[in-house]
């Protein structure tokens, strides 16, 4: 099956498409909003993962 990073990117993609069509009216606005949301989700998750990295699970 797909690895977790790919699944996260896919989930971010679906969410970004959904909200860009839900909240934005024009094509240009939608593109801009899509990249903002998609970038925030993917980059944010990776940054958060690195912030959590020093903390052990146990």
């Amino acid at each position: 099956m797909l690895d977790h990073l790919t699944l996260m990117v896919l989930d971010g993609f679906l969410i970004a498409v959904f909200f860009s069509f839900l909240w934005k009216r024009d094509r240009r606005e939608r593109w801009l909003y899509f990249w903002k949301v998609f970038g925030a989700l993917v980059v944010g998750a990776i940054v958060l993962a690195w912030v959590m990295y020093p903390f052990p699970r146990g």
């Binding site: 896919l10 498409v17 069509f21």
Partner: peptide, 16 residues
């Protein structure tokens, strides 16, 4: 248009 996009996004998410 929006209906088609929403349908695809939600159904793909559900099936996945």
């Amino acid at each position: 248009l929006r209906a088609a996009v929403f349908f695809v996004v939600v159904v793909v998410g559900f099936v996945l």
